[in-house]
Amino acid sequence: MGRYVIRRLLQMIPVFIGATFLIFVMVYALGDPVAALFGDKAPDPATAARIREDLGLDKPLWQQYLHYMGNIFRGDFGTAFNGQKVTELMATAFPVTAKLTLVAIVIEIVVGIALGVVSGLKRGRPLDTSLLVLTLIVISVPTFVSGYLLQYLFGLKLGWVRPTVSTDAPLNELILPGIVLALVSLAYVTRLTRTSIAENARADYVRTAVAKGLPRRRVITKHLLRNSLIPVVTFIGADIGALMGGAIVTERIFNIHGVGYQLYNGILRGNTPTVVGFVTILVLVFLVANLLVDLLYAVLDPRIRYA
């Protein structure tokens, strides 16, 4: 087990280097950001040259990358154009997005799995069919439609919640954005759980458990659900990273100043340190989440062993 974890951690190094390099190249390809800093005016050549020099933009790409990576290992993620340290931006953005992701994941797990179990056990019945249709609708509606719609309905028309989230982003204000963010994934979780449950419900070990005279509740939670959750856990694990990085639209609609907001600003202004810094952390979150998922397999299914 220990050796397995170490091996996986070592594998992260090349993935990390490759990912940061790709992002670096992509942001670089967006073009020189300095001219846009001057608005409608033509950039003053001397000032623009000095800014380029300070940001290292006058050097070839590979030198910029090496310089940047060297700084990262010293804990220096660079500076955004507005003069803030990228680490400072991270310190304010990540907790907010982590909270939002947490809310979304909890909703996804609780509602998604519950609906999936119900629907899987009632396979082919009207309830199952209507849930399937419902998930299809949810999957096909883009986030910015559901976001604005729910915001208008609950925030403006009914006035149950604040339509936007305040600066310190308390949990109760994050519930609506959390739902919006979770909706699509929730539909996937429901469908995955349903299929898995429906399949396993006819497995030998379930029949044995029922034949032993175990109560139905125990058969479902201990035997059926536990074995059916493996694909769901895989999905949710991968989804943590996707939700953290993919909250750009949701964060914009509800004015949440998290990772999505910083990434949006960074890309719009072509600010390499912000974008690469944030994406690097997201890549790490993704890798760690994947590792945790793999370790969870062993917990869920005793047949799986790591060495």
Binding site: L156, P163, R252, I253, N255
Partner: peptide, 18 residues
């Protein structure tokens, strides 16, 4: 002064009295 990334959201907040 509150930062908004989306002027639609700011407008919604104006409508909601925030």
């Amino acid at each position: 002064l509150k930062v908004y990334t989306d002027n639609n959201t700011a407008y919604t907040d104006l409508m909601a009295g925030n």
